[in-house]
């Protein structure tokens, strides 16, 4: 079998640098998605139609088209309109953040809707205003429904982040590809990158279960 891991040893630091690049844009995208997703979710659960509609349309578009298409449009098509040479990092964060926001908003919305309607009525009957009701009564209960799904979303986003290699962002995936092209050996660098992705997801999953366990303690 033609397999020789010693050949990629000199390139290992080069590939490892990709971890930082991947984590940097993944974490910024998650934060961006979380922020925008929360705002969208609040628009969806409110009773104002003019807020709900745009949020629903937004979600439909970003969930209804391929992520790679959104990435390509942001990186290659939008500059054509505005003659602005968009940096790869910005394109990556925009595409993943905007896309994730759509999913996050649905997760939060569903989590809030799953809270017993009686809780809202009990709060209303006590004269508790909307904001404290949301912050102190509904959201703490919704969090238990939201968290597992949210961890899933973060895991998916971390894995899918490899897509940014297609626009030339020097992430883990892209670096593995470059090493493969230089050595004319693809199996070793790709397998190496695969192991790193798996370790990252493994750590993320464990953080997720730890948080879930903590939440369940209050039951």
């Amino acid at each position: 079998m033609n397999l020789d891991f010693s050949q990629i040893v000199p390139s290992i630091p080069f590939i490892l640098e990709g971890i930082g690049a991947t984590l940097k844009f993944v974490s910024v995208s998650i934060l961006f998605g979380l922020l925008l997703g929360t705002i969208l979710a609040l628009c969806k659960i409110g009773n104002k139609k003019w807020l709900k509609w745009p949020a629903d349309i937004y979600t439909s578009i970003f969930r209804g088209t391929p992520l790679i298409l959104q990435l390509m449009i942001i990186h290659y098509a939008v500059p054509q309109l505005f003659l602005y040479d968009i940096p790869v990092f910005l394109s990556a964060v925009l595409a993943f953040g905007l896309n994730s926001a759509a999913y996050v908003s649905e997760i939060i919305r569903a989590g809030i809707m799953a809270v017993d309607k009686g809780q809202v009525e009990a709060a209303e009957a006590l004269g508790i205003p909307y904001r404290p009701m949301m912050a102190n009564i509904i959201l703490p209960q919704a969090l238990k429904n939201i968290l597992p799904a949210m961890m899933n979303e973060f895991i998916t986003l971390t894995k899918e982040s490899a897509l940014v290699s297609t626009i030339g962002y020097m992430d883990l995936m892209r670096r593995a590809e470059i090493v493969g092209a230089q050595l004319y050996r693809n199996f070793e660098p790709l397998l190496f990158a695969g192991v790193i992705y798996w370790v990252m997801i493994f750590i993320l999953t464990n953080i997720g279960s730890w948080v879930e366990r903590r939440l369940r303690q209050s039951d």
Partner: peptide, 21 residues
């Protein structure tokens, strides 16, 4: 203001609706 009105009216529900957390 509904919230003002409700301050003066207590309500007890069939299914309690205590805040579980």
């Amino acid at each position: 203001n509904k919230l003002q009105v409700r301050k003066n009216i207590g309500m007890v529900f069939q299914h309690f609706h205590l805040f579980p957390h």
